[in-house]
């Protein structure tokens, strides 16, 4: 303490809390996007700290694709009870049933999350949405602002972003427009895990190594579950695996791992040589700029 230097985790924590408080102070109706993944868990944890001992002054929203790991839904519901949160669920299956959206080829619901999200934003009148995205995740994200302006269609225009200097954020918008806010912009995957380990932040058990029946498909390990059946030529086998990301259960692959504690996960991440999206997400492999294209349409 005598050197009066904050270590990197506390520096990042401080910066994120500053961002979260700025939004609460300046925006009319913020909402925190919660996916059940580790990034949104850390973001929620920081929001709790930002307003303690008061409760979080905004709701959290979950885009339920209907393809979630049941463990993630159970985890979400427990957090909502424990932290006394207001939860908004935007349901993709409901939107499908109403015929508002249609599934893509291969059963991907990644693209149709966007219209469901935009409809929920409009219904609830949210003007600021917190997302747990980090700039180290993907090259289009590396250029996105902490306060990212979206027009009335929810679109991101990478060439027309507001300059962002010091810690002076500009959240001024016209009615119907929104700001997407990324308090974890400067965190890396390893920072997130170090933080979870250091502050004992609870995460779904799927992140830790466990035995699970999986099939190997294009070099990736997919769990056999309600959403994925083994194909005729595939032989399911029990392997020791864990998940690095929490996407849809029909698209998210597991990685082989012996890391059954958070400390071992940190060790594993520090040594790993593949990005988390590259290792586990079928949905980002479409093209060099697939993330940029989805963000322009209003995706997070």
């Amino acid at each position: 303490m005598t050197s009066r230097v904050l270590d990197q985790l506390r520096t990042l924590e401080s910066e994120s809390i500053h961002v979260i408080r700025e939004v609460a102070a300046e925006m009319q109706r913020p909402c925190l996007m919660f996916s059940g993944g580790k990034d949104s868990i850390v973001m929620l944890h920081l929001a709790v700290k930002a307003f303690a001992p008061a409760r979080i002054p905004f709701p959290i929203m979950h885009i339920d694709t209907g393809l979630n790991f049941p463990e993630v839904i159970a985890f979400r519901d427990r957090l909502v009870t424990d932290l006394d949160l207001d939860l908004v669920v935007a349901s993709v299956p409901d939107a499908l049933a109403r015929g508002e959206v249609r599934e893509g080829p291969g059963g991907s619901r990644n693209r149709i999350q966007t219209p469901v999200l935009l409809a929920a934003i409009e219904e609830h009148g949210f003007d600021a949405l917190f997302g747990g995205a980090r700039r180290d995740e993907e090259k289009a994200r590396a250029k996105e602002r902490v306060f990212s302006f979206r027009d009335e269609f929810g679109q991101w225009d990478p060439k027309n972003q507001r300059p962002e200097l010091w810690n002076l954020y500009n959240g001024r918008i016209a009615p119907g427009e929104q700001i997407r806010v990324f308090p974890l912009s400067n965190w890396t995957e390893l920072d997130i895990w170090n933080y979870i380990a250091h502050y004992d932040v609870p995460v779904p058990g799927l992140y830790l190594a466990h035995d699970r029946e999986v099939v190997e498909r294009q070099g990736m390990l997919y769990a056999v579950n309600d959403f994925i059946d083994a194909r005729d030529d595939e032989v399911p086998a029990v392997r020791r695996v864990r998940y690095r990301t929490m996407g849809d259960a029909n698209l998210t692959a597991a990685v082989e791992s012996e890391a059954d504690t958070i400390a071992k996960v940190v060790e594993e991440i520090a040594a790993v040589r593949l990005t988390e999206r590259g290792a586990t997400r079928g949905d980002d492999k479409v093209s060099d700029t697939s993330m940029e294209d989805r963000k322009k349409e209003g995706y997070f």
Binding site: Q8, R135, D136, K139, A142, K143, P158, K159, Q161, S185, N186, T188, L190
Partner: peptide, 13 residues
């Protein structure tokens, strides 16, 4: 075109 942010770490920083 724009400002890009990049991250790396060593054991020191």
């Amino acid at each position: 075109i724009d400002v890009a942010y990049r991250y790396f770490a060593t054991p020191r920083r």
